Amino acid sequence: MTDTVKGPASYFPSIEKKYGRSIAEWKDLIRTSPLTKHMELVGWLKTEHGLGHGHANALVAHTLAEDSGK
């Protein structure tokens, strides 16, 4: 029996398929951005990289949570 992925990570397969970058690449971009606030990063991913709001939000939420140890 496999566990269903929940939360932001549930978007990861479709993000990789739709935008052609691995999740690790997206996280590296987020981490190297001079922006630090959640919604600033979401807006940046949307405008500069063409991500949809839900995908950008999932990547930022997961990356920031991971970096804060949550």
Rank of each mutant, 00 (worst) to 15 (best):
G50E: 14
G20W: 10
L59V: 06
W44E: 12
N57L: 04
T63K: 03
D67G: 13
I23D: 07
G69W: 13
F12I: 09
E40I: 01
Y11N: 09
V5K: 08
K46I: 15
F12M: 09
V5T: 05
L59H: 05
K6P: 00
E40L: 09
S68T: 13
D28V: 13
A56I: 05
T63H: 02
H53Y: 14
M39Y: 11
E40G: 12
K6C: 02
D3P: 02
T2E: 03
T32R: 10
D28E: 15
N57I: 02
H49C: 05
A65C: 05
I30R: 04
K18N: 08
T32C: 02
S22P: 13
E66W: 09
A58L: 06
V60F: 00
S68I: 10
L45S: 07
K17L: 10
K70S: 12
V5P: 01
W44P: 10
D67F: 08
G43Y: 04
H53Q: 13
E48L: 12
S33Q: 08
E16I: 05
P34W: 06
P34M: 08
R21F: 14
R21G: 07
L45I: 10
S10W: 04
E16S: 09
D28H: 13
K17P: 00
S10A: 14
D67C: 07
E66M: 14
L29S: 12
L41C: 01
T63L: 02
A58R: 06
R21Q: 13
G7S: 04
E66L: 15
L29P: 03
Y11G: 04
K6E: 06
V60T: 00
G43K: 12
D3Y: 03
E40H: 14
G7N: 05
E66A: 15
V42E: 02
A61H: 04
G52K: 14
M1I: 00
A56V: 04
A9L: 06
T4I: 10
V42F: 00
D3W: 03
T63Q: 08
W26M: 12
D3R: 09
K70F: 11
A24R: 15
A24Q: 15
I15E: 04
A24Y: 13
D67M: 11
I23T: 12
P34D: 14
L29I: 12
H38I: 00
M1R: 02
E66P: 03
K37W: 07
I15C: 08
P8I: 04
K17W: 05
E25C: 15
S68P: 01
D28M: 08
L45D: 05
H38F: 01
G69K: 08
E48W: 07
L64G: 01
G69S: 12
A9I: 03
L64W: 01
G50R: 15
K27Q: 11
H38W: 01
K6T: 06
T2L: 01
W26E: 08
L35C: 06
L64A: 01
M39K: 07
S14P: 00
T36Y: 14
S14Y: 03
L45R: 09
A56Y: 02
T47R: 15
A65H: 10
L29Q: 11
K70P: 01
T32K: 12
R21W: 11
K37Q: 12
L41Q: 00
K17A: 10
L41P: 00
T2H: 04
V42L: 02
I23A: 11
